[in-house]
Design a binder for these strands. Sequence first.
DNA 1: TAAATTTATTAACCTGGGTGAACGAACCGG
DNA 2: CCGGTTCGTTCACCCAGGTTAATAAATTTA
Lengths: 193, 193
Amino acid sequence: MSIHTNLINAIGHFIRMDEAEQSFVSSLFVSREYQKNDYFLREGQVCREAGFIEKGLIRYHSIKDSGEDVTLDFGKENEFTCNYESFLDHSPSQRSIQCIEPTEILAISYENLQLIYSKVKEGEKFGRLICEYLYLQAIKKVSSFYGDQPEQRYLHFINSYPDLQQRIPQYYISSFVGVKPPSLSRIRKRLSM
Amino acid sequence: MSIHTNLINAIGHFIRMDEAEQSFVSSLFVSREYQKNDYFLREGQVCREAGFIEKGLIRYHSIKDSGEDVTLDFGKENEFTCNYESFLDHSPSQRSIQCIEPTEILAISYENLQLIYSKVKEGEKFGRLICEYLYLQAIKKVSSFYGDQPEQRYLHFINSYPDLQQRIPQYYISSFVGVKPPSLSRIRKRLSM
DNA sequence: TAAATTTATTAACCTGGGTGAACGAACCGG
DNA sequence: CCGGTTCGTTCACCCAGGTTAATAAATTTA
């Protein structure tokens, strides 16, 4: 039985596992295939699986009361994904996870993740570290929104994700940056002069 | 030897502890007193202690490159505090924690927190849960900044912290909401009409 | 390839927040 | 109780982003 190498490597950045644990952990994930615009999670549903992105590109988004579609973040190959708050307390998710490229995700159920926490020696530590990591990500975004103007946020985006810029439509980027498409065009024009 | 009741109750919201564990945990914290405008943590320092606010009020803030003082969040009685990212990886803190009232904080060193993780039965779980909690807080703020106009963020603030509104100067609130004082005045005027 | 659709840019006008300064109120310390 | 500082509000002006709509470019589909 082959193991999911990329996944195990990714978890290996957080904790040590022996071979038996690696096989065990790997066996708890199932592979899921998505086409462009398919959803890994829809707003209103409970997020019952966490995922590891083997291949592809996702965006986190939600629909505001006004009906506006807001892109909150992106995720790509070798990153973990889920709506953590929904996943943790089984509450309806406030945001969707949509694949914006053909995407392959290794998914693990809440119950199976608890098995990792309880059966793997450093499983509980893994849960803590992955959460800490997600926390740092969130904090960085808060800081960026407090400290930066839209123009700086855009620059920050293209510097942080130079490879993603080509793979993501402008209107998702503008939404992510926090402005409307005409404004992002103006920003891009300003920057090119 | 008396234990820190509020603290133990707060931790008790996350995990179960027997009496011996409660005493042990309590003994790892030391009480620190701060006057108004004193700092629990200064930008640039490594955050070597996490704290539990027994009494008082703090604000998280940072100084932008432009020199502007930005208030990122507030914390009050019975809440935990630290700069988690600095605390976790011993990196220089990007933000300060300032007491804006006379404040009493029960502090625990990084090393002693590791003792909780390792010696208390559900210690590792506590670390995970407290991080999850901080994560949810951060996520909520990100969502708020994406979804809301300054006016809505202000309304959200006074609804979420009705008791804090009297205790916090306007210019900290305006900074927290993400606008300048004159703009917050205009918002307040609009809302009162 | 042509037509249809989607996406990106541009223009004109509007709105809300930033800036700098003035004013008054509240809060200190002497 | 007074003088000084700090704090909140208001004013006038400016600017960046929002809005709507038109247009152009790119992508899809037939």
